[in-house]
Write a protein that binds this DNA or RNA. Structure first.
Length: 894
DNA sequence: GTATTCACG
DNA sequence: ACGTACGTGAATACC
């Protein structure tokens, strides 16, 4: 039998935690009435995630009455809680709404003159325990753990308000070696700085625990103090005796206060969703509103007419009724539903086509799409299609042997361009931006182990039809938002055509030689084993070499090597640390070798082998077009944008990537220093532009500038290397700290480099300041193609968050404009390949380079055309330079 | 699920 | 007083 549950919440301390947990969002979270809502948002999350699911029988949120001065503690000590900084007004203004929120979630608010929230909780907890309840306390204040018993658990927030540490008597014993009651004794000795009362001078946590281990409690300690051997501490204890006993009184939470409201009247009433709607509307809690609507729609809570959407009708398609589709007209929404993220291989479970005016038609059987009525519709570019994720749909149709054309509106692509920040690539969440609420896929299919396609086909089709219906409704507001952002060109002429190019590249795939990988894998396995044995001998024990934790113990504890860098959880064993330690112990170098080989084997040999399609020996990556914050692509399953290159050992992996036809070659073309050229262009810096216009070695030229060398001076390699690092730093949004770290020089030296750099390239300096100012004023920055990146933290009060946003403001236009350029180039290259009737195929993009396969006979002409298309893709104030290479494998195309 | 490490531009 | 270079993805360990 389970006990009845009593939930006691420390309102003040949790609200306080909530406010500071989202403090950096303070300026972002303001309702249309000008009310700050950060604490409200966090507190609501707490109620949602912790309280609502718990369904207690009784529940109360206790609040402090006044400042604490009117309590017995204020009487005991007039300076009680003095010295606390004034509560910010942005916090105070949220209090009334916090109480309202609590009430609407079905909990009692309770406060009482003369009592603090602690005392209310303390008293109810004992009343509840006596009445047989299982009691749960939630607070942000560790002092409350003194209340823990076998029937009373105290949950203290750890980070934010939804991460919690559970204190039971057992846990307290384990953690502090104290019983709950002794928490008070400890406090008596240490005092409490935040409540502004002293304990015993010079006694802190450690000393207090030691004293309690010996003397058990305060009474016993003072009873036996004469026997204590003389020390400064003994003196302090004697002098501060009264203070200690007063501190114990102050620290003791009342458990028998006279409460006006009897226990049985704090009944939990459950969440009042209907009343929460206007409340959330007032606070602009869009996510919460969407959630309620979704709950109502799915019948999990009672619905009413104001939120029920008109259900979409779907006509089930069969061979016999396909002719009805001719009624649809020239604009439809179209969606093939697929369930694995990997649309190259996963199952297609149905499709819907239609529009709001005529209706929606669908089937679970996607092979119907190959019937002539549907095929002509799909392949007719005069019939405009609205879709979600055109690249995925293009590939799915290709798998069915169909060529999807006429796509004009891709909601995913547009939503990504409008705002990259809150983009999870999920239709239901993105539609919410436009106040359209769809049932999330997860709700229909479940997720993880619970994933299941519903047996009710009608339900599946309805779900797809709702998406189609949303695609019709979203088109107009989405296009108008793109227009407002001046992003129509970016959408229509860059991203949408690029999606088609990428779909072809992915579908085409790149051929891999599995035997080569297997052979290298065997070689690596042997060498890894040898190094591992050598390391075990040197270490004198066997550990898991892949565990940074075990490695840390070995190197820094057993071997006593100096700790150079720490991580959040322990010692860092990262490569730069190990390189510094290598001269001190031969084992370190062996570990570095082990790491390199293990990485190659697991990620690149085994990893690539596992994603080769056996039927054609090809790898089909997916380029994510709507993920990065800057506009770059990324590549997954597998990532073909990080195949090793820098070490020869790793670079050999590229030998496995081969042409898919006999007598073909791999051909690569890359932009040289595209980001620095973009920098020279956008900043308009005359000196840097001149260097590029004159075809100079830019890093050498930078070295001459920052080291004050004459124009024709020879630059030694170290100077060039330093200048190169400075150039990188500039592109990343430089800081002296970062540069110093990278170059292993002092911060002051790094600062001198940066200062000189900015003197030599003054317009770069000006631009850095302007772009930061622009970001502060507008909350976003832009690329040359009006790609936008919002920077929510640009006005944050937190220095780190703000600094990060400022560096991002400087870097994103550079990295993003370079991404714009290569995207434009890809479209033009694709067109050029067609126009010249090349057999050559574009296969991969790696940020500043394009990889192709082509007949050997085409290479010379291809090289000429592709480099010229790429270097003229856009017209900047500096030239773009493209280099190209070809060879029998990707490795040889260097 | 989070943290660490390391591969790329 | 704070404490960082920009953008990614995959493998592994560990809770």
């Amino acid at each position: 039998m389970t006990n009845k549950k009593l939930l006691l919440i420390d309102g003040n301390s949790l609200a306080f935690r909530a406010f500071y947990a989202m403090y950096n969002q303070l300026d972002r979270m303001i309702s249309h009435d000008g009310l700050h809502t950060n604490a409200l948002v966090a507190f609501n999350n707490f109620l949602d995630q912790i309280v609502d699911p718990m369904q207690p029988d009784l529940a109360v949120v206790a609040w402090d009455a006044g400042s604490g001065k009117t309590t017995f503690r204020g009487e005991l000590l007039s300076s009680y809680k003095d010295g606390r900084s004034k509560t910010p007004s942005e916090f105070l203004e949220q209090f009334p709404y916090l109480r309202e929120m609590v009430a609407l979630h079905g909990l009692r608010n309770y406060q009482q003159e003369g009592l603090e929230a602690d005392d209310i909780i303390g008293t109810y907890s004992r009343l509840g325990e006596a009445a047989g309840y299982s009691v749960t306390i939630v607070t942000g204040d560790q002092d409350l753990i003194q209340l823990a018993t076998d029937n009373i658990t105290v949950n203290v927030t750890k980070k934010g308000v939804t991460e919690i540490e559970r204190y039971t008597p057992d846990y307290i014993l384990e953690k502090f070696n104290l019983t709950p009651a002794h928490i008070i004794e400890k406090k008596a000795l240490t005092g409490d700085t935040s409540d502004n009362y002293p304990g015993v001078t010079k006694v802190g946590e450690k000393t207090a625990l030691k004293l309690l281990a010996e003397y058990h409690d305060l009474d016993n300690l003072y009873a036996n103090i004469d026997g204590m051997k003389p020390s400064k501490m003994k003196e302090n204890l004697m002098n501060d005796r009264d203070q200690a006993f007063r501190a114990r009184q102050l620290a003791t939470i009342l458990t028998a206060a006279d409460l006006e409201l009897p226990l049985e009247e704090i009944e939990y009433r459950g969440v009042d969703y209907d009343a929460l709607i206007p409340f959330y509307e007032k606070l602009d809690f869009k996510q919460q509103l969407a959630k309620i609507k979704a709950l109502k729609r799915s019948g999990q809570i009672a619905g009413d007419d104001t939120v029920d959407e008109k259900s979409v009708q779907v006509v089930g398609l069969k061979d016999s009724n396909l002719r009805a589709l001719s009624m649809l007209g020239d604009k439809v929404a179209l969606h093939i539903e697929y369930v694995s993220e990997d649309y190259h291989a996963g199952e297609m479970i149905g499709f819907v086509i239609g529009n709001a005016a005529v209706g929606y038609y669908g089937s679970r059987d996607v092979s119907l799409l190959q019937q002539s009525e549907l095929k002509t519709l799909v392949e007719n570019d005069k019939i405009q299609k609205n879709v979600f994720n055109v690249k995925a749909q293009l590939v799915l149709f290709k798998r069915l042997g169909l060529k999807l054309t006429g796509v004009n509106f891709d909601f995913l692509l547009a939503a990504y361009l409008l705002d990259t920040v809150d983009n999870d690539n999920v239709f239901a969440t993105l539609a919410q931006r436009f106040d359209i609420y769809l049932t999330p896929d997860e709700e229909v299919y479940g997720k993880g182990a619970k994933f299941k396609i519903p047996s009710d086909s009608g339900r599946v089709l309805m779900h797809i039809a709702n998406k189609a219906n949303a695609l019709m409704a979203l088109e107009e507001p989405t296009f108008s938002a793109l227009n407002e952002h001046q992003q129509t060109h970016l959408y229509t002429d860059i991203e949408l055509p690029l999606a088609h190019v990428l779909a072809n590249m992915e579908f085409q795939g790149i051929k891999v030689n599995p035997e080569y990988l297997q052979e290298r894998g065997r070689d690596l396995a042997q060498r890894i084993e040898d190094i591992q044995s050598a390391i075990y001998i040197e270490a004198g024990e066997k550990i898991n070499l892949n565990s940074p934790k075990q490695l840390g113990v070995l190197l820094f504890e057993k071997m006593g090597l100096p700790v150079i860098k720490k991580t959040k959880t322990g010692y860092s064993t990262a490569i730069d640390v190990l390189e510094k330690l290598a001269p001190q112990a031969p084992i370190v170098d062996h570990i570095l070798q082990y790491r390199q080989l293990a990485k190659l084997k697991s990620t690149y040999i085994d990893g690539l082998l596992s994603v080769i399609y056996p039927e054609d020996s090809k790898i089909h990556t997916r380029f994510l077009q709507t993920l990065t914050q800057t506009g770059r692509l990324s590549s997954v399953d597998p990532n073909l944008q990080n195949i090793p290159m820098r070490s020869e050992e790793g670079r050999l992996i590229r030998t496995a990537f081969i042409p898919s036809e006999p007598n073909w070659q791999i051909f690569g073309a890359d932009y040289s220093q595209i980001e620095l050229r973009v920098l020279a262009h956008v900043t308009g810096d005359a000196n840097m532009q001149k260097a590029f216009l004159n075809g100079e070695d830019i890093h050498a030229e930078t070295a001459r500038a920052v080291f004050g060398l004459p124009n024709d001076a020879v630059v030694d390699p170290l100077m060039r290397r330093t200048a190169k690092a400075v150039n990188f730093g500039i592109v990343y949004g430089i800081s002296d700290f970062g540069l110093a770290n990278n170059l292993g020089i002092s911060r002051a030296e790094a600062k001198r480099f940066i200062d000189t750099y900015f003197q030599e390239f003054p317009q770069i300096h000006d631009w850095m300041n302007q772009i930061k100012q622009f970001a502060h004023d507008h909350g976003y920055v832009e690329t040359i193609a009006h790609r936008r990146r919002y920077l929510p933290d640009i006005n944050a009060k937190n220095f780190n968050l703000r600094s990060f946003a400022e560096r991002t403001a400087m870097n994103s236009p550079i990295q993003g404009s370079a991404a714009d350029i290569i995207k434009i180039a890809m479209i033009k290259v694709n067109d050029a390949l067609k126009a010249h009737h090349f057999q050559a195929r574009m296969l991969l993009q790696v940020h500043d380079e394009l990889i192709f396969e082509a007949p050997s006979s085409e290479i010379d002409e291809l090289s000429e055309i592709i480099t010229s298309v790429m270097d003229s893709a856009v017209s900047l104030d500096v030239p773009l330079k493209v280099e190209s290479h070809s060879g029998a494998t990707w490795y040889d195309a260097k």
